Simulated scan of single mutants.
Amino acid sequence: MRAVVVQEFGGPEALEVVDVPVPVPGPGQVRIRVSAAAVNPVDLATTAGLFAEMGVVAGTGPTAIGWDVAGVVEEAGAGVAFAPGDAVIGLRTRLADPLGTWAEQIVLDAAAVAPAPDGVDPVAASTLPLNSLTALQALDALALKTGQTLLVTGAAGAVGGFAVELAALRGLRVVAAAGASDEEVVRGFGAEFFVPRTEDLAEGVRKRVPGGVDGAIDAAVLGYPALDAVADGGAFAAVIGNGPDNYRGVRIHAVRIKADGVALTGLSRLAASGHLTLRVAGTHPLAEAAKAAARLRDGGLRGRLVLLP
């Protein structure tokens, strides 16, 4: 079968499609025939060698690519509730695994898999796992209560968009920060307030929410400008990295994404009911993985690109 790997780290052009053995699921695992696999910024980071520098993956030899998957169960190991033929979505987080989701088939722990959202095509469904779980786990870390205020930076992006929608569903008052042209979109997600990028972030937030917000999800990785918008004693979730140094009693949470089939099942139901917006920027065949990665690197997309084996 075919899979995408990087042999020597570099840009999108380093991605290769190679032939590999069909994986075999063990106890507690499922083998999924991939229908669609989303392309995420973390895939570009993997290709560039970031995780090799961190020691998460080997510095030599082929490195597998891909986190998100939507597909159909082909084989289930012992002790698994899923059965062949089940439509599922899943998240691969163990980067040292020899196979990623940019492949024709993938083996995942059943605990990282959830039923696919009813009535949603696999292309759209593949954009859900990584970004929605990141948004959910960031929101959970903040532990805000109904009626409190939340700043979401990068609110028009994949993680930010889900964060706005999930926060609004919890009854939080959301301040969205994004490009001026995205105001209508993020207000449609449920944002009550909007701060365009052209405006000083902390000043703009405090103008709309005197004293600052109760919490922030920094999906745009702005750091201190976003932290300055948080009230003393508030909470801050850094989607990438460890976030800015703590001061003014603000609690800093570094989000470390983990696969969670139970939580993903809930998110799948929200997507099926229309409470989460799934956005696809375009599709490419698996053979054009390098082209898709280059499009993501060049920016300007709204929604995720998706690979089709």
Rank of each mutant, 00 (worst) to 15 (best):
V73N: 01
V56H: 04
A83E: 15
R187E: 07
A292Y: 09
P309K: 08
V195Y: 09
V107A: 13
Q105G: 14
A36S: 11
A155H: 03
Y224I: 05
E104A: 08
A271M: 09
G212E: 02
A87N: 12
E199Y: 09
H275D: 14
A112D: 13
E183K: 12
E165T: 01
A141Y: 01
V123Y: 13
R94M: 09
K145P: 00
A202I: 08
I217G: 00
V80R: 13
T134H: 08
R197A: 13
P41H: 06
G119W: 11
V255Q: 06
L136H: 02
N131F: 08
L99N: 08
G160V: 02
F194I: 02
L308H: 15
G157F: 00
P12W: 00
A48E: 11
G261W: 01
P27R: 07
P117G: 08
D43Y: 04
V306M: 11
L99V: 03
I89F: 02
V24F: 10
K258C: 06
V159G: 02
G215V: 02
L151V: 09
R94N: 14
V18A: 13
V175F: 03
D118T: 14
A167G: 08
A289T: 03
T101K: 09
V22A: 15
D140H: 05
D245R: 10
G71C: 13
V230R: 00
V6P: 04
L44Q: 04
R256G: 09
G243C: 13
G55Y: 09
A176P: 03
N131A: 15
R94H: 13
A231C: 05
L172M: 07
L201F: 15
G61V: 10
F9C: 07
P122A: 15
E8K: 13
R256Y: 12
L150M: 10
G171S: 05
E183Y: 09
G28H: 07
E288W: 11
V230A: 07
I89R: 14
V30E: 06
V205C: 06
P12I: 04
G28N: 13
G49P: 03
R297L: 13
S126P: 04
T93Y: 03
A96H: 14
A116F: 00
L278H: 07
V72A: 15
V42M: 07
V24L: 14
G188R: 02
H275V: 03
A14P: 07
M54S: 12
G100F: 15
G179S: 15
H253C: 11
V69T: 14
A87M: 08
G90K: 05
V239P: 03
F236T: 00
G11I: 01
V159C: 05
F162N: 07
R302F: 08
L301T: 11
A254C: 10
G11W: 01
G79S: 12
G300S: 12
L169P: 00
